[in-house]
């Protein structure tokens, strides 16, 4: 499938990555080549085949629904580019 400029712009938006207008054409070619490569999967008859959810045959373990740690706000915030008190700070979202 060949992606056009508008499609690439939309994907970039969904991925929350700013892409400069002059890069869109080049990316459209690159991404289209990869999609063409993966589209050979269309040859395979997969009717009735279960999509893989777990590569190892196991049932997910359960655990008690209990609080096992906490009160580590300082550790959680230690790498934040911007914090204030016990919070992460971001640009204003509500007017």
């Amino acid at each position: 499938m060949a992606l056009d400029k508008a499609a690439v712009r939309k994907i970039a938006r969904l991925a929350r990555i700013r892409v400069a207008e002059e890069e869109l054409d080049g990316l459209a070619v690159e991404l289209s080549n990869i999609l063409t490569f993966v589209e050979q999967l269309g040859e395979v008859d997969t009717a009735g085949v279960e999509p893989m959810t777990s590569v190892v045959a196991m049932t997910l373990p359960r655990r008690a629904d209990a609080v096992t740690d906490g009160n580590t706000a300082d550790k959680v915030l230690v790498n934040a580019p911007e914090g204030t008190g016990n919070f992460f700070a971001v640009p204003k979202v509500v007017e």
């Binding site: 790498n79 640009p91 979202v93």
Partner: peptide
């Protein structure tokens, strides 16, 4: 996303900051 760790490049809105 520039909120919890690592690089942050400012933007006027939250979405712009992410992008």
């Amino acid at each position: 996303d520039g909120v919890r760790y690592g690089l942050r490049v400012p933007g006027r809105t939250l979405d712009e900051m992410y992008e």
